[in-house]
């Protein structure tokens, strides 16, 4: 109930701002909604965006349950894309789709996890704070990808930094003419999987114990270092699936900046979704609709720019975050860590 109130409040404030720049807020709202949900095509786009938001939202949520604040979704998504891209570029001439697709998905998870594992290791054994290291790793990922794309993976003769196209066996089945592809099913499976893992397995139990009370986790026999690694690797793997949706589902080649913004938005999605898989899914749908409806809105009404859409997202985050007192546990966790 509360999230709905928060969203409504955010929309009222947005409406006022829209009115100030001289646009009828009700017209804007109608364009936003029809833009997001008005046709099969727009619904398809909304779901495609929502798929990315689900992956990064789940990534943040899993880490959060372990008391870890993973801000590196951006970089992990990037590397996940590299992983599945490399697997496909290496194997798509030989393997059929039914074999290649699972391998590529696994490669995305592996690369995303590996990119999260380094900051996790640094925190668990060296004590460097994961918030700092995951942010830094976003920059490292970005630099690494540019280097690889410009110097190594660029298709011969191409002027833009992108790899050669994937053979059809390396492409996910998609709805014709739309970016919506089989990754949506993967996202739903991840939601279910995260739910089962966190609340119905002993590892999820231990992970949540660590997040709530590290001392009790030690007492209960959990190795905090190993659990930190596990939580971050899972988180990174989930973020890495953004690469599956974008590269295998849409671009069908490795490109630059396909992950832009999804990793950070994942923090907001998890926040809104109360770190519960179902909540994350609903929040991801909302963010997907905003992304798609906002694009339509910016297209129809020139005085509303793309930045305006970002403002709307920001306001929703503000209202659902500040009003719900959600950052409090993070701050507590942060303080608890400082004073052992």
């Amino acid at each position: 109930m509360l999230p709905l109130v928060n969203i409504a409040l955010a929309f009222i404030v947005v409406g006022i701002i829209v009115a100030i720049i001289g646009v009828d807020p009700f017209l804007a709202l109608r364009l936003l909604v029809t833009g997001a949900l008005g046709s099969w095509e727009s619904i398809g786009y909304t779901l495609y965006y929502a798929t990315n938001f689900t992956f990064t939202g789940l990534a943040v949520a899993v880490a959060f349950h372990a008391g870890l604040f993973n801000i590196g979704g951006e970089g992990q998504a990037y590397l996940g894309g590299l992983g599945c891209g490399l697997a496909i570029l290496a194997l798509d001439r030989w393997l059929p789709a039914w074999l290649l697709i699972p391998i590529a998905i696994a490669a995305a998870a592996l690369f995303g996890a590996a990119w999260a594992a380094v900051p996790a290791w640094l925190q668990a054994w060296r004590g460097s704070h994961i918030v700092i290291t995951t942010i830094m790793f976003n920059f490292v990922a970005s630099a690494l990808m540019v280097y690889l794309m410009v110097n190594v993976l660029i298709a011969p003769g191409s002027m833009t930094p992108q790899s050669r196209g994937f053979a059809p066996s390396g492409q996910l089945p998609a709805i014709a003419g739309l970016p919506l592809n089989l990754s949506l099913a993967l996202a739903l499976a991840c939601c279910a999987g995260v739910w089962v893992f966190l609340w119905h397995t002993p590892w999820g139990y231990a992970l949540r114990t660590m997040g709530h009370n590290p001392e009790a986790a030690v007492y209960g026999g959990t190795n905090l270092r190993r659990m930190t690694m596990l939580a971050m690797c899972l988180s990174g793997a989930l973020a890495g699936f953004v690469g599956v949706n974008e590269l295998m589902g849409v671009h069908h080649r490795i490109v630059l900046d396909f992950q832009a913004g999804y990793g950070f938005a994942g923090i907001a999605v998890a926040l809104m979704g109360r770190n519960h898989p179902l909540g994350v899914l609903l929040a991801a749908l909302l963010f997907g609709a905003l992304q798609q409806g906002g694009a339509e809105l910016a297209f129809e009404i020139p005085s509303i720019t793309r930045e305006m859409v970002v403002v709307i997202q920001g306001l929703i985050i503000l209202f659902s975050g500040a009003l719900a007192h959600l950052p409090r546990p993070w701050l507590q966790a942060l303080f608890a860590r400082r004073a052992p």
Binding site: T201, P202, R208, T209, H212, A216, Y219
Partner: peptide, 27 residues
Amino acid sequence: MVAAFQASETSILGYQDGPPFTRNYLL
């Protein structure tokens, strides 16, 4: 104990990994 956990969850702290609480990897 873990303050935020249900009493039933607190009642297995430390014994969560084995039977009778975990069977086939599931709690």
